[in-house]
Design a protein around this nucleic acid. Sequence first.
DNA 1: TACGCTACCAAGCAAGCGCTTGGTTATCAA
DNA 2: TTGATAACCAAGCGCTTGCTTGGTAGCGTA
Lengths: 224, 224
Amino acid sequence: MNSESVKKAVMNEASAKARKGTASERKLVAGLVATGEVSDPDGPRGRLLHAAARLFQEKGFAQTTVRDIAAEVGILSGSIFHHFRNKEELLCQVMLEVSRVATARMAAAAQESPQARLLACIRCELEAIHGLAVPGFPILVSEWRSLSAESQRRVLDEREHYESIWIAALQRRPAGVGIADSQLARKLLLGALVHSHSWFKPRRRGLTLEALAGQVLLMVWPDQ
Amino acid sequence: MNSESVKKAVMNEASAKARKGTASERKLVAGLVATGEVSDPDGPRGRLLHAAARLFQEKGFAQTTVRDIAAEVGILSGSIFHHFRNKEELLCQVMLEVSRVATARMAAAAQESPQARLLACIRCELEAIHGLAVPGFPILVSEWRSLSAESQRRVLDEREHYESIWIAALQRRPAGVGIADSQLARKLLLGALVHSHSWFKPRRRGLTLEALAGQVLLMVWPDQ
DNA sequence: TACGCTACCAAGCAAGCGCTTGGTTATCAA
DNA sequence: TTGATAACCAAGCGCTTGCTTGGTAGCGTA
């Protein structure tokens, strides 16, 4: 039998609405929704993107079926293709919107002193990686090769601004100690930060996210 | 039609035999084969493991079919299950043997001075990641969640010695600068190094593997 | 010569996959 | 009241997947 059916998962909808972050966070996303840069998270398209982001991050792109995604928002799998041409475009759109939110957050976290600025970048990316602000961020790295060449180009274009903020922050470091090449430092940092997703869970006790950010800063800006 | 057929790919066999590394490298593997810790790379089991490692690394576990692996060694897909219970056990065995080779290499790379020793660890892992010595190493990180809980436990046990060598090297750093916690430093380094697989290609010109290792060392052992 | 063992083939099954098609319902402007 | 449009369902098609089954060729040992 082919028993795909719609079971409204009421709890999922409720918890999805509850977890939206702080007030300033919501304002930032609302601005992007207003300009059409990201989808309305309450519309059908936005709900699908959020569900896909969550599942792609949790199980991986190939291991997530369109039926999984559809079930999470309470529709049947075929209905997904009313909103997206195919599964890969869904992944691509997730990445594009995640990039836009991450970039806006990064731009809003600017600081005065060079050191505080770099620390803010690190903290900002850590928050994104651990889903506190931008659910789906690790997908940008872990599912990169699941994209077609064409989609990779699109996402790369979108991420350019984000990366330029990083490079600018790294270039304001004093010369003489640590890794001089800012491009190199950025790549190594990205790897270290993204991998933290597999071992670090933000807590009040033990290692906090802020403390971790401070330690990571030492890798590219050693004291003394 | 169901046209799965056996086409001997002569070139694959030849190139597989050609690329075995230096003499000391071959001796190291031969020792592990003699004790039964890793499979004979010329036997059917060893050939399957090598093919699987290559494909899992290139395309990912879920995106690699048993037919892909079988074709690479010139047999039919069903014959794989004469050697391995299922696809996941194949992945698990790949990880176990990769761990054993990586550990043996690491143990053989010991150095006198604390700094040279840590640098050797970094270079050794970089060589493993970029397939110069231990094809399949990045799988240990990228396909971790494709393993069952039971298999994760087995692989974790095997990797323990490898990680202890790292920790020992990190603990010999002088106090006062950089990241003090060796366990934390190791996790951040692993992320940074593994991610290099997606952007670094070892060359004679430009950034060499040795130069990269030197820069990475600065992240946990800043000069001055 | 008989036996057992390893390594493999040939064929295909059941399940699951992404995606298509044709039709239905709710909403809202003209 | 009509008609357009967005959002979705019901059904299932064509294909791929991991894996099973029953049989066989070749080889070393007794």
